[in-house]
Amino acid sequence: MNSRIDLTPPACRQRIVRKSVTRRWVLSYACVAVAIVVILLPLRIGVVAKRSHLSWLQREAALDADFERQLNEMQDKMDRLVAIAARYESVAWPIDLSDVIAVIADVMPRSVTLTSLTITPRMQRERGADAARSPSSVVLELAGIAPTDLDVATLLAGFESHHLFDRVSIDHSRPTTIRGVESREFGATCEIELASRRVTTVAGAEGGKRR
């Protein structure tokens, strides 16, 4: 019967046993680490995807809030414009400002957006030091956004061809970017002479064009 005789010194035998145990522990830790990485990696990818989606939602919410703010500003401007029109009409000018606004709406191309409209009377003093001042003309200052200069030119041509406006001029037309889209920001001035004028009804841009 064969018997195995271990001639390894006890100190070496203990060292070998400790190394074997250490290797087993290291291998166990490595397996656990790999398992943790395999489990956490999809979770990490999911978290990154959710953060990206959340960031997109936040950007969309910011755009919606900005759009709503612009709508509110436009509504406020329209309310002020209506109030101005009512006040001017109460003065009994020889021109109906609601008709002026209707003409602007008819002449303006669909691609053009009006951002502001200011109506200012140009006053003249009658003869005599104590004579009251009366409006001689109405000046309309318009500002807006258009896709191209051609759209701006079309708008101005519509104003010039209408009998209501006596003078039309472009103040500026410069490039701008609206939500990543290149556009033109423009300003124009139209003047209506009130002398010997009595405008009570304006049928529209086509009906009011100069012959």
Rank of each mutant, 00 (worst) to 15 (best):
E126F: 02
S3H: 13
D106R: 02
S169C: 06
A35Y: 11
R51D: 11
K50L: 06
T113I: 10
V37L: 08
G204I: 02
L114W: 00
R24Q: 13
A188G: 05
V202H: 02
E206H: 10
E89D: 12
Q75E: 14
A157I: 10
A188C: 06
F67L: 13
I95P: 01
A33S: 12
T115W: 02
R125A: 13
Q58M: 14
M123R: 10
A49I: 06
S55D: 15
S52Q: 15
T22A: 15
P109I: 07
T118G: 01
V34N: 03
A62F: 04
H172D: 11
L40I: 09
A102M: 14
R87Y: 07
Q124A: 10
I84W: 03
K50A: 12
T154Q: 09
A132M: 09
A203I: 15
G180W: 09
M74Y: 07
T8M: 05
T120H: 06
P42C: 00
V202L: 14
A35F: 12
R197M: 04
V47C: 07
L156I: 03
R179S: 10
Q58C: 07
L164H: 02
E60Q: 07
N2V: 14
M108N: 01
F165Q: 00
D96N: 14
A49P: 03
T154Y: 05
E60I: 06
I101Q: 05
Q124L: 14
Q58A: 11
E73K: 13
A49W: 12
A205D: 03
F165G: 00
R24L: 11
G158D: 01
R44M: 10
V48S: 07
T200Y: 08
